[in-house]
């Protein structure tokens, strides 16, 4: 069980961005964090692994408060993929090997190299492994970053809009890979995502943030037109298409008409 309690955050001298964010999840849950731009979704991710300091907040993984641990110990439990990633002159293999950083004492061991090899294969990156990451496409780079996070062998994986720079095919591919590996390795995933249909397809829990607080949290039943309209302030229809739930944005006047 992963318990996230009482996360609150504000930048210096500004109003609160997050207030009393408390929720829990199982080891195999795949949670989507949803909400408007600036709602504090990315900030929440960074509070969960201690990049941002939330004074009262606690994050319990297997009964231990991770936020009280040293960075290196946190990194063994929680991996994070930032929204924007830049390629530098380092190979794919070496970038993924960085995921072993929390475990490496002086140098990478044979086991580290083997694990990196395995993950590179799982992510379908084998043919790129000795290419420099400033020479590969955005989609490949995103996969490399995910591979690096998986090399940390985390219990919880935090992803900040991992698909925002990808084309539709790559979006589905990347999320499928994450979902499969997370299921197999028993990794909990929290993902900040804007595409509601992608969220519906891959996530099993949905957490809406509005006005600094949790607006609602729950399984697929939470994804109602009503909830989405309140959070995003736009009219939508939630329909069933051959057993798959889909969200369809509606023209603005629909909302006006309904209000009348």
């Amino acid at each position: 069980m992963i318990e996230i309690n009482n996360i609150e955050f504000s930048y210096k001298n500004t109003k609160k961005i997050l207030d009393d964010i408390t929720f829990d999840m199982k080891e195999n849950h795949f949670i989507a964090i949803l909400g408007n731009n600036g709602a504090g979704k990315s900030t929440l991710l960074k509070c969960i692994n201690g990049i941002n300091t939330s004074e009262k907040g606690t994050v319990f993984i297997s009964g231990k408060n991770v936020l009280k641990m040293h960075n290196r110990e946190i990194a063994k439990r929680i991996a994070y993929v930032a929204q924007k990633n830049e390629g530098t002159r380092v190979t794919v293999f070496d970038t993924v090997l960085l995921g072993r950083k929390p475990y490496i004492k002086w140098d990478a061991t044979e086991e580290d190299l083997k694990l990196v090899e395995k993950i590179i294969e799982q992510m379908g990156l084998s043919e790129y492994k000795l290419r420099y990451i400033d020479e590969i496409s955005g989609g490949e780079l995103q996969k490399v970053m995910l591979a690096r996070a998986l090399a940390q062998q985390p219990k919880l994986l935090l992803l900040d809009e991992p698909t925002s720079s990808l084309d539709p095919k790559n979006q589905y591919e990347v999320l499928s890979i994450i979902k499969n590996i997370a299921k197999k390795e028993n990794i909990a995933v929290i993902i900040v995502i804007h595409d509601l249909n992608l969220a519906l397809r891959y996530c099993d829990r949905f957490l809406f943030i509005k006005n600094e607080k949790i607006y609602s949290y729950g399984d697929i039943q939470t994804m109602t037109a009503n909830c989405i309209e309140h959070v995003y302030e736009m009219p939508v229809a939630v329909e069933d298409f051959n057993g798959i739930k889909i969200v369809i944005p509606l023209p603005e006047e629909t909302l006006v008409r309904r209000r009348i």
């Binding site: 201690g50 290196r72 990194a75 930032a82 990633n85 070496d94 960085l98 970053m145 940390q152």
Partner: peptide, 16 residues
């Protein structure tokens, strides 16, 4: 090497 991926990523990899 970790700092090459940005400060936040470096921190998430256990770097002080």
């Amino acid at each position: 090497n970790a700092l090459g991926s940005g400060k936040h990523t470096a921190k998430s990899l256990g770097v002080d």
